[in-house]
Design a protein around this nucleic acid. Sequence first.
DNA 1: TCCTTAACTTGACAGTGACTAGATGTGGAT
DNA 2: ATCCACATCTAGTCACTGTCAAGTTAAGGA
Lengths: 195, 195
Amino acid sequence: MARKTAKTYHHGDLREALIKAGRALLEKGGVEALTLRACARKAGVSHAAPQHHFASINDLLADIAATGFEDFVKALNKAAARAPSPVERLKAMGLGYVAFARERPAVYQLMFGVAAPLSSERLRAAKAAAWEQLANLVSEAAGPEDKEAKAMQVWSAVHGFSMLLISQRLPTMINVSRTLDRVVNGLAPAIGAQP
Amino acid sequence: MARKTAKTYHHGDLREALIKAGRALLEKGGVEALTLRACARKAGVSHAAPQHHFASINDLLADIAATGFEDFVKALNKAAARAPSPVERLKAMGLGYVAFARERPAVYQLMFGVAAPLSSERLRAAKAAAWEQLANLVSEAAGPEDKEAKAMQVWSAVHGFSMLLISQRLPTMINVSRTLDRVVNGLAPAIGAQP
DNA sequence: TCCTTAACTTGACAGTGACTAGATGTGGAT
DNA sequence: ATCCACATCTAGTCACTGTCAAGTTAAGGA
């Protein structure tokens, strides 16, 4: 479809190359290292080349965040796959959620931590998929009534813990694994799910 | 102690003036508007003047965040003051927490949303005060055993919801007030507090 | 083959945080 | 009262950022 390696004037697949470069920069140096010009350099093009594919840096960030959400959904699916019951799956997903945030804090921070919410079609779809997954699981575990609010309850708990953890806002005396246990085990009771 | 208005070469109280300017910028234009040079302009000094009072912009941001925490503690105290029982106080504090985040999202985002954790003595003290307040309340409501983990549970839930809310990450179909009710009413049961 | 047009480069601009060197004035020691 | 060390502030510069404008290159349909 598109030559990736050939050193031509026209890159051929610059859009995806920029996203890939951005992901690498993000993993390596955090959100601060993720600049438009750095992405361009890494992709081997001039600093203004991205203009044609992304109207502003936010559009690029949105697509990078979208790939993060895609990975996120996969990770949650994988985590929940082996659990036998809905409640067990809820716990497993909670653990998988926090694990993802801990393992890839920069990506998670981009997905949730940026002041202005990013937007792109790809990002919208990826977010919708993640939400769908959660809402369905909550519905299975605790019944369909008021499932959105229940899902938000679950989401708030794991998201809040993840954010506090990776942004290093936790008081020093906190025992992380014990607290994580409490948070995860508190999910099902909070939404009235029977084990 | 220090003249504030006199137009002298030496400002007299530039440190506090910069913090005050920063707070104003933050409220008006969000985190993005909060730059070192803008603070200097608003305080009526040259762009390099802050250097002597704050080694880097992060030190200034840390002190601005500290004033946010000081306000935060006051707001939570006020919210919990009228409630009769520990459990009621917990709910009231949860509502006050989310209300603060909604009313002053930029400040809240600075306090919790920045990638690198800020640090200053003033910030450390303010954060410690907030944590103390929460841990004590949780201890009153649900007993002293494992109170740190329980406090984290409560904190995670309200923080997560607040962050998702103010960063506009909530799915569109979510009923905010109903969800807030669920989150707040779920706090006491989650930590095993008797009403 | 030409020629429209998308893709890319080059150069510029205003803005940022940080650093340096020099100007200024304050307050303590004499 | 005088002087001077030192904290404070200004002015200028640097490397970096995102964005825009204008020119260059080549791809692909007529």
